[in-house]
């Protein structure tokens, strides 16, 4: 995709998010130049804090025009700003989205995501809602078609399929973007690489891979992909394997002992796995007791380590896992 086209697509996505948010946010972002607009990754709106946009080069404070006389870092988000965002992203229907909000985020049409901060209401140690909401982190959904092209050849095994793969990186380094593109490419197949089309099951507990809104995937995950949205991985992975007969099961951010058990069960069922986990190095993962069994077992044929060194999605290393050894 040319730079100009990529900028236009990015701008369209941002415009879509801004059409959902209250007008004062769009007014504030109008101070960005077109290049900066195409780089917006997140918009942070937190009571008492400046309005912050995260660009690929770092954070920037901005303010609505009404406050332009003041320095942008002097502008502070007030309660009415937060309320207006809540009103807009929920279409004034907090009660209808409470179940999703318990997870700490909301999915918007277009697959964009809004993280929520504030004071959760607890009942027997479980979050049952929010007694007050004080901030949002709006993450612009930017699926990158072709994000997996560079790494894909090193994940392939003879017979036109791929190894079970674990993708590791700290947050914001493009794990989910890579996973999403791998899913799409595997689902479509890539004859030029000798990759045959696969049936994929996506266990999308946090609605990040498919970006589902009200259960409907908003991202293109290919023609042979089934998604179970907003359901614990342990349950959705087993449902997918039992009912959808996938060749590959993909899931994001494993870490809980239950996830590890689900991964182990899926491998025993003979499906190929594509999973991600937070961490900077393999050592970080082995230090986490819950993930140690995964690395010790022969679950993965490839381990991909990502960083932001040359921008999000920089492939640092592809390690051969025990599955192949």
């Amino acid at each position: 995709m040319s730079t100009l086209m990529a900028t236009q697509v990015a701008d369209r996505r941002l415009a879509h998010v801004l059409s959902i948010l209250p007008p004062w946010v769009e007014e504030a972002l109008s101070s960005l130049d077109p290049r900066e607009r195409s780089e917006v990754e997140e918009i942070r709106i937190s009571q008492g804090q400046p309005l912050t946009v995260t660009l690929s080069g770092g954070d920037r404070f901005i303010s609505p025009k009404a406050h332009a006389h003041a320095q942008s870092q002097d502008f502070r988000i007030e309660k009415h700003h937060v309320d207006s965002v809540l009103d807009a992203i929920t279409q004034s229907s907090v009660y209808a989205l409470e179940e999703a909000m318990k997870e700490g985020y909301l999915s918007l049409p277009g697959g964009h995501r809004v993280g929520i901060s504030g004071r959760p209401r607890l009942d027997r140690g479980e979050v049952v809602g929010f007694s007050c909401i004080t901030g949002f982190n709006v993450r612009i959904n930017r699926p990158v078609h072709g994000a997996s092209r560079l790494v894909l050849p090193s994940l392939m095994r003879p017979g036109g399929t791929i190894y079970s793969t674990l993708i590791i990186s700290p947050p914001g380094c493009g794990k989910t973007t890579l996973l999403r593109d791998l899913v799409r490419t595997l689902s479509e197949g890539a004859s030029e690489l000798g990759l045959r089309p696969h049936r994929i099951g996506v266990a999308d507990e946090r609605s990040e891979i498919a970006g589902s809104h009200l259960g409907v995937p908003q991202n293109d995950l290919g023609p042979r992909t089934d998604v179970i949205d907003a359901c614990p991985k342990r349950i959705s992975m087993s449902m997918l394997i039992r009912s959808m007969r996938p060749d590959v099961v993909a899931t994001d951010e494993i870490g809980h002992p239950d996830d590890v058990r689900a991964v182990s069960d899926a491998r025993s069922a003979g499906v190929v796995l594509l999973v991600t986990a937070h961490g900077e190095t393999l050592k970080d993962l082995t230090a986490r007791a819950s993930l140690r069994p995964l690395l010790k077992g022969s679950y993965f044929g490839r381990i991909v380590i990502l960083s932001r060194r040359k921008g999000p999605g920089t492939v640092e290393r592809v390690i051969k896992g025990r599955e192949e050894l």
Binding site: L86, D87, T90, S92, S93, V94, Y95, A96, E98, G129
Partner: peptide, 10 residues
């Protein structure tokens, strides 16, 4: 308050 709290509260 309409719309902006839990179902119970509504």
């Amino acid at each position: 308050t309409i719309g902006l709290s839990s179902a119970q509260d509504q």
